[in-house]
């Protein structure tokens, strides 16, 4: 059962956030462990398991980035598994990431916080662009599932999203230092 199945939704990137929240609330009430008879340990356990699965599914689907990674995993590329993901990233993408990380490391050494902020703003914009590019590919996969080129492109763009997220975590840590 996929996270989409939990909510009775089709596996599509585009979804109505308000509708998802409504479905989550309704199911959370319906499956709440307190509704199981106190004497029925098995029913209680099932309710706890269903609620856990429901909350996991909600956490993933309501987040635009996690939802994209999840759809990519459904298409066969799991970037949420350590060591997973594409092994054929274009060298330019790795160079881009390495250069950014080096620039951030330099800013850190020099305690040049404005420079770090400037880099973070740039990376944030790049991440938004990479996610949008990945979503276009994922939507192609939705309409024509046997589309290895689109899956590959989505995996490359979401790899960039992951790299940029790591970058932004580092930049945030540096920001903490600045305070």
């Amino acid at each position: 059962m996929t996270h989409f199945d939990v909510f009775g939704l089709p596996p599509r990137y585009t979804l109505d956030a308000a509708d998802l929240e409504k479905r989550h609330r309704a199911l959370a009430l319906e499956w709440h462990p307190d509704r199981a008879a106190p004497s029925d340990a098995r029913a209680h356990r099932v309710a706890v398991e269903r609620t856990t699965a429901l909350n996991d599914a909600y956490r993933v689907l309501k987040d635009p980035i996690r939802r994209a990674f999840y759809l990519l995993a459904l298409a066969g590329v799991d970037l949420d598994h350590a060591g997973g993901g594409p092994r054929d990233l274009p060298i330019e993408m790795l160079e881009e990431v390495l250069e950014l990380r080096e620039a951030l490391a330099e800013a850190k050494t020099a305690k040049d916080f404005p420079r770090a902020r400037e880099l973070a703003a740039r990376v944030e914009a790049e991440r938004t662009g990479a996610l949008a590019a990945a979503v276009l590919c994922l939507e192609l996969v939705e309409t024509s599932p046997a589309n290895p080129v689109a899956v590959k492109k989505a995996s490359h763009q979401l790899s960039r999203v992951r790299y940029f997220t790591r970058f932004l975590e580092e930049a945030d840590a540096l920001e903490e230092e600045a305070l």
């Binding site: 060591g83 993901g85 990233l89 060298i91 993408m93 790795l94 790899s159 992951r162 790299y163």
Partner: peptide, 13 residues
């Protein structure tokens, strides 16, 4: 040699 483990966000030169 420039390689990466995208799931972890690791890059190695």
């Amino acid at each position: 040699g420039l390689v990466g483990a995208p799931a972890c966000g690791d890059v190695m030169r």
